[in-house]
Design a protein around this nucleic acid. Structure first.
Lengths: 315, 315
DNA sequence: ATGAAAGCGCTAACAA
DNA sequence: TTGTTAGCGCTTTCAT
């Protein structure tokens, strides 16, 4: 009997001796069978080799371990079929709950889970109309703050290079940009908003585009760092300097942002914290069935100021 | 009964209907209990947020899934205590086998596992004197090839910036360097071998060091890309050009290597393949107890030639 | 071709 | 305080 208060010290010691001698360790799976509890959670993510997720996974695993849970993990490559398989796997392994990030197109699986009353928390992206609690990072706010930084520096001619607009993230960042421009009563020109696709090359092209305009912008907010790197190239190629001729703000804070010259001002995302929070929420749901608070948790990204931005009038 | 040949088609269909209607899914944990088999493997790695491991983890998970296994993962942060806990966890979860990368100082755990006749494969680093099969990448060969590339380009004055020499990897790369120099009958100068610690700053310092020498080298092999980035800075600061004045080869092929100017020639490691191979080996061990081949698997890194190297006489 | 029963290793409930 | 027993959901064996 597991540490019950009514076992004599003496017996405990005796038992412990035998345990050590035989090298016995308890069979968690038999225990799981009778207790209907595996002390395991599932982690379903699109791609562990996308630099966003390892930190998240680490946060999940660290916190889960602290709370006495272990984690089974699955990559889905954003593939609907694999997402379904991953969920079925979690069911058959009888995990106590699941942390997942599904592709938007896969609502059905979420609904099925809801029907079965499974404990789930969504991370990074929330499926619209789903009832499960989500832990996400506020992209709109991030973009708003990035743009505001430029405005506070005195800039008025600000462009934006978006990500692939099919993706919600890009839409959110675009909206944050527009909102900042609006809040400060600047007007933005449609031609200063150029669509990219998150790749370095698309950043290069978009920037080239912007720089050949007659009234070219003096600052640009770019939806991710990789495109910003491409933009750097375009800027240098035109013989311009950062930030003297043009200020640039990226998004993501990838490793290169601090290494490249000039250091890239960018938004950093609380990835580890996201993982921790998700594990916290899920496990408190599991351990304590009443939902104390099932509001979504929205984490704030943070501005990292480096050398790629400066005031318009600083010169 | 699971797909036995002696069940009438009719019955099968009937059963299937009921299954679908009730939304039944089999309880893998009860099955595991009676079969003494969980179809789960453990993955114990130092740090998923170190860019080396996510690819490895992906390789493991992909291959495991193909072979019908799922994976429980643990981060250890190279902490002995956490390594032990992770192993105990795997035992209590009754995984069918473990893929792990332990710190060298933790031999005892490996030995204990051996005693218990557990299926294990080691990745990335092999504990000396352990009997478990390992899947590793040949650092000595990689360094040898990197250096040879420089020699084949016609260089004779070649320096080396090492990593932290407490770490086996650094030793291996140093040895590969020396071996290449020896094979081609060049002689190396001790002062051309400078110790760094894998950080960008140490690369900068070491390079500064090398460049202020009276007889400064015309080429340098650096034990990782991050230090190479630091070295770039030192080189540019001295008003020198890459590769005109000095050729540089790095190691790791981190993302920045292809983005920085000039593109860094470097060694890339088959990380995904490492993960796959480890899963292959482990699961074939599990499924088929006789050890077909328990030799270590040694994977070869590959040279990626970019713009940071050129022949000594090309000018 | 199908049904009944035993048992995997554990915990909870109960009896002594 | 300790010992005994039932049963978690499955597979396997044996009997029908």
């Amino acid at each position: 009997m597991n540490d019950k208060p009514d076992v004599s010290e003496e017996t405990k010691k005796k038992i412990q001796k035998v345990i050590d001698k035989l090298g016995y360790n308890p069979n968690g799976i038999a225990r799981g069978l009778v207790l209907q509890k595996t002390h395991t959670i599932g982690l379903i993510i699109p791609d562990i080799s996308n630099p966003f997720f390892p930190e998240v996974a680490k946060g999940v695993e660290d916190r889960a371990r602290e709370l006495n849970y272990s984690v089974i993990f699955c990559n889905t490559d954003n593939d609907k079929k694999r997402e379904k398989e991953a969920i079925d796997l979690m069911k058959s392994k009888h995990v106590d709950g699941i942390i997942l990030s599904l592709s938007i197109s896969n609502k059905e699986e979420i609904y099925k889970l809801e029907e079965k009353n499974f404990d789930v928390v969504q991370i990074d992206r929330k499926i619209p109309d789903s009832n499960y609690q989500a832990v996400v990072i506020d992209n709109t706010l991030g973009a708003y703050n990035a743009t505001s930084h430029l405005i506070e520096l005195g800039h008025t001619d600000i462009a934006h290079i978006t990500g692939d607009l099919e993706i919600q993230t890009s839409q959110d960042r675009l909206e944050g940009f527009k909102r900042a421009i609006g809040t400060f009563d600047l007007d933005y020109k449609e031609k200063w908003i150029v669509e990219g696709d998150f790749s370095k090359e698309s950043g290069y092209k978009a920037m080239k585009n912007l720089l050949t305009l007659e009234d070219r912008p003096k600052a640009v907010f770019i939806a991710n760092d990789l495109m910003a790197i491409g933009a750097y190239e375009a800027i240098f190629e035109m013989g311009l300097e950062i930030p003297q001729d043009i200020s640039v703000v990226g998004y993501d804070d990838i490793e290169i942002a601090s290494i490249i010259k000039p250091g890239l001002t960018t938004m950093t995302q609380p990835k580890y914290k996201l993982g921790q929070a998700a594990a916290d929420v899920l496990i408190s749901k599991i351990d304590n069935k009443r939902n104390i608070n099932d509001e979504d948790i929205i984490l704030n990204p943070k501005l990292i100021i480096r050398d790629s931005t400066r005031g318009y009038e600083d010169e």
